[in-house]
Design a protein around this nucleic acid. Sequence first.
DNA 1: ACTCAATGTATCCAGTGGATACATAATCCA
DNA 2: TGGATTATGTATCCACTGGATACATTGAGT
Lengths: 189, 189
Amino acid sequence: MTRREAYHHGDLATAALDAALELVAEDPSASFSLRSLAEKLGVAHRALYNHFADREALLAGLAARGFAQLAATLAPAPDPAAFMAAYVRFALDQPGLYAVMTGRRYEQINAHAPLRAAVDKVIAVALDALATPGADDDTRRREVMRVWMLAHGAIGLQRAGMLRLRSGDEFAEEVLRIAGLAAREENKR
Amino acid sequence: MTRREAYHHGDLATAALDAALELVAEDPSASFSLRSLAEKLGVAHRALYNHFADREALLAGLAARGFAQLAATLAPAPDPAAFMAAYVRFALDQPGLYAVMTGRRYEQINAHAPLRAAVDKVIAVALDALATPGADDDTRRREVMRVWMLAHGAIGLQRAGMLRLRSGDEFAEEVLRIAGLAAREENKR
DNA sequence: ACTCAATGTATCCAGTGGATACATAATCCA
DNA sequence: TGGATTATGTATCCACTGGATACATTGAGT
């Protein structure tokens, strides 16, 4: 451990988020305990509280990461169809992470600066990909929301088993079809 | 307690769901404990297990009730706009209940017959209100899903603070506008 | 070298969901 | 009618959780 990053056990905050991501990937309900997380890291469970005020703060940190990753995934989207396909695939690929991201409430997001920033970044990317360049702000905002609502709604209803859609790529294509966005070849994985 | 419904403390199963609904209304995160619920009912916390296999079963029962109530609320909807407005208002009026309803997972819904039936009832009502009578099944299904996705997505994004929309009636109207369904006078409360 | 803040540990606590064993009351059937 | 049976509720226990308090250790800056 000659690395500069190492304190006692290394960069525990980062390691904790890494481990939390794994636990969430294993169990999308994110019902993991701080103790199991600490055990996974070989550390006293109380050590985590040096980096995260409480469990919610840890989840907020994980959510912030997720939104940053989502923004990076969506950034190259050249049009609404590509955006929506990429968005839906992200949520399907990492259902636990997506649940953590969208499970925070408004106040929790605003109380956590990095998370707020990460969400705003996604909004900015969405505006680029979805909104008509010349239009006024209200119109642009509505254009973004329409696509986002459809995508987020589809994911939520799918998870709750209310739609009974096919899963995987076919799901993304079906959502595009319903949204009125043609599912073109380049949108396939 | 000469009433036929009374056993020891009355119809505990129903009373438990009533009390749970209150607790969820107070705290939409539905983080209430079975013990607080039992205390509210003046009963040993273990008594609840005579009526519900576990905490999840109790939530499933509450969700089933919610969907039945939702179906009744939506049934009179004469057109998609009215349907969507009523749906959004239901979710805003009872955010905790709506979260419990949509928080169950696919397997949990199917494992609970009354819940499954209640969800199917809502789907039937939605088909009536949203789908073109003569169209083929796939088209009808997609018509339903489009509206439902928009409504559910809007509610979810609003709760997560990602849309920053106005709340209350203005929220419902804005969602209708985004969905491309005119907000007419009769949709107002 | 010495101090101090950052980090990690040890130990405790009240509260939780759930299990097992037992008590009581309502119903059913001889 | 009355005794057995079953539904319901209680008492008590358990492992586990998030979090608090007190203390130990380590690295960094002077």
